[in-house]
Simulated scan of single mutants.
Amino acid sequence: MNHNSQILNQIKGGLVVSCQALESEPLHSSFIMGRMAQAAVEGGAVGVRVNGPDDIAEIKKTTDVPIIGLWKQEYDDSDLYITPTMTEIDALAEAGVDILATDATDKIRPGGITLDSFFKEVRAKYPDMLFMADCSTFEEGVKAEQLGFDIVSTTLAGYTKETAGRQLPDFDMLERLVATLSIPVICEGGIWEIAQLQKAFELGCHCAVIGSAITRPQLITKRFTDSIKEIQNENN
């Protein structure tokens, strides 16, 4: 079994935990993300999804599970932010990620570049890297496989203008992708309940990614405090 097949096998049927905290968030710190990843692995996570070379370097000290790497960077001429240019691709490859994730929606990338020409260049430069397509629609997932991505994920469903307000997790998109594609499909986005996670596996996902419901305490807390408000409003 080659290295890439081994990585895909390692995460198959398991839970990947997204350990990310943006600069505006209380847990923003490579050290904290390293400990977060360690805790996730102790809980049985088969992989981690990590933002940026600094956090990746720290997480490599604490865990040895496969790393799905991305780098969120904002550019003035594009609203695409998950691994937008070759600069981020190079940095993540150098950081030693096992799977490299990038936005695979139909948005135009910085510099006016389309996904087609971008990924052609990326694949030529890194023929042996596993690439994960973060998609927002079924059609984007189909196209990603045609372009040569190794994995398709539902990551961006509900997070683009076109898909805003969509109910998450997007089980319809997941089910259609699993039925249509021959490459692994990952369910990511909006999983908060055990029943949702189990349904994703029943629908045939290769693995599932959970972020906020495990690693963003401010959102976890808010979910509980909102529930108190609901009861109080009902009683008033």
Score class of each variant (00 low, 15 high):
50 V>Y: 05
88 E>K: 04
9 N>G: 15
13 G>P: 07
50 V>L: 09
18 S>K: 00
45 A>M: 04
36 M>P: 02
89 I>P: 05
46 V>H: 10
59 I>R: 01
57 A>K: 15
43 G>F: 08
74 E>M: 11
27 L>K: 04
73 Q>M: 13
12 K>E: 15
37 A>F: 03
60 K>H: 13
25 E>K: 08
37 A>K: 00
27 L>N: 07
67 I>R: 08
61 K>S: 12
88 E>G: 02
17 V>G: 00
53 P>F: 08
56 I>Q: 07
15 L>Y: 11
78 S>Y: 12
64 D>R: 10
80 L>D: 00
92 L>F: 13
24 S>E: 11
53 P>C: 03
82 I>Q: 02
71 W>C: 12
58 E>F: 01
62 T>L: 11
67 I>N: 02
25 E>L: 07
47 G>F: 01
93 A>R: 09
23 E>C: 10
17 V>F: 02
30 S>V: 05
35 R>K: 15
37 A>Q: 00
61 K>F: 07
71 W>S: 04
37 A>E: 04
14 G>S: 08
30 S>E: 05
71 W>P: 00
62 T>C: 03
24 S>R: 15
22 L>I: 11
43 G>R: 15
58 E>W: 04
85 T>L: 10
57 A>M: 12
69 G>I: 04
81 Y>R: 13
46 V>N: 06
61 K>Y: 07
10 Q>G: 03
61 K>R: 12
85 T>S: 08
23 E>Q: 13
78 S>M: 13
57 A>Q: 15
89 I>G: 00
89 I>D: 00
10 Q>C: 09
83 T>A: 05
73 Q>K: 14
71 W>D: 01
41 V>T: 06
17 V>H: 06
44 G>A: 05
72 K>A: 04
83 T>N: 06
74 E>Q: 10
22 L>T: 09
18 S>Q: 05
52 G>W: 01
27 L>E: 01
23 E>Y: 03
33 M>T: 01
40 A>Q: 02
75 Y>D: 06
55 D>W: 07
40 A>F: 04
85 T>V: 15
62 T>H: 11
47 G>V: 10
15 L>Q: 01
69 G>F: 01
